[in-house]
Amino acid sequence: MDYAAKVMDHYNNPRNAGKLDIASLNVGTGLIHVSEYIEVVRIQIEINPAKNIITDARFKTFGCGSAIAAASLTTEWLKGKTPEDAFKINNMDIVEALSLPPSKIHCTILVEDAVKAAINDYRHKNGLEALQEEALESNYELEGM
């Protein structure tokens, strides 16, 4: 299997691998798994509530190299975004950025879901209503959910 150089780069030097304080009110955690592929992605974000900006992001992945790269790349994108903008991250953006083959699209769906879950976890903790996916964005079948 020929992995794109971008995937190898993230695999060899994962960005923002690690953990944030799950108990902190400013931290949102999304932990998503797809049982068919036995993959698990955890995305965490730290939000500055005054500025409504994501100040930090961390990931951990149990899964193939593409799933690791997808989560790693996404944490780079998350920093500096508002939660509302981060919520719009689409898995196909990740597919494109990493030049992933169709067989690896499922890895990026997992990451997109983890981002959304992390944002809504933060909102839930802070008594905010969950953000909803717009109808337009739900074209992709959620596999194994």
Binding site: P14, A17, K19, T29, G30, L31, I32, H33, V40, V41, R42, F59, K60, T61, F62, I68, D113, A114, A117, A118, D121
Partner: peptide
């Protein structure tokens, strides 16, 4: 970088992980 390994090392019950 494995979330499962982290949970295992922290002594989590691996059969009842709370998924988002």
């Amino acid at each position: 970088i494995s979330p499962l390994w982290e949970m295992f090392k922290e002594g989590a019950d691996m059969s009842s992980i709370e998924w988002s």
